[in-house]
Amino acid sequence: MRSGPPRAWAAGGAQSPMTKAAFIRICLLPLAVVVAAFFVLPMTRLVWIGASGRHGIAAYAAIVLEPRYAASLLDTVLLALATTVATLLIATVSGLFLQRRRFPGRALLVAMLTLPLAFPGVVIGFLIILLAGRQGLLGDITLALFGQKLVLAYSLAGLFLGYLYFSIPRVILTIMAAVEKLDPSLEEAARTLGAGSWAIHRDIILPALAPALIASGAIAFATAMGAFGTAFTLATDIDVLPMLIYTEFTLSANIATAAALSVGLGLVTWAILALARIYGGNTVAANG
């Protein structure tokens, strides 16, 4: 019954899909060239260089076995995680507020919040020094209040503030766009069913924002893992991984170790993002 006419039709149209496939292949060629030139070749080279030092392939094991490197890796991951969590918390609350309320000065506030998008990491480091450095505002205030100067700028706390400053604008814009797309009748439906503000946020709004939170959180995390400018300006007592790579590369001319650390940084970031995506996907599936 089913095999008659459809098969004849498929045979008649067989010529056209072939040309279509060829056409698509031609269109994909530039992408293939770019991927090869900027991704596959350099990465292969990097991986190869990483294994070309005195210790050979063991250079990779050193990332975890050598205490200095391992501590740096751990610091970097924890710092990036803390930045991501804090950014998501702040950006979700403010994004919801900014998208839903109309008040005088709102446009100005949004513009101010997104201004740091244009700043390089060095400028952000400089701002943190102005805020919490040895001559900073925070130091003056604490000196006046408690008779002791609080200096955060050159520690992990300073980096954390800098990364936060760096990440919030990026995340807040994504969240605001996602909030705008929320269907207001979903919220109204929940309210008619008796849900209060907390329940609506927990059951309706946050699940609907989950994809945006995962996507923008991933960007914040990856940025914090690899940020260099801010670290370079602030890090006198701390060794985050990008700083370590820089020192190995320029000061110690230890190119193999620098390469191995770079590959390690990439892999760890990728693995954590993959975990987040799988976990995020699972929660959505479990709820649905």
Binding site: E188, T192, I204, P207, A208, V284
Partner: peptide
């Protein structure tokens, strides 16, 4: 304590 059916139905997509 009202029940409401919306034109778009407004079913919760995450449930």
């Amino acid at each position: 304590n009202v029940g409401m059916v919306f034109q778009s139905y407004a079913l919760f997509p995450n449930m």
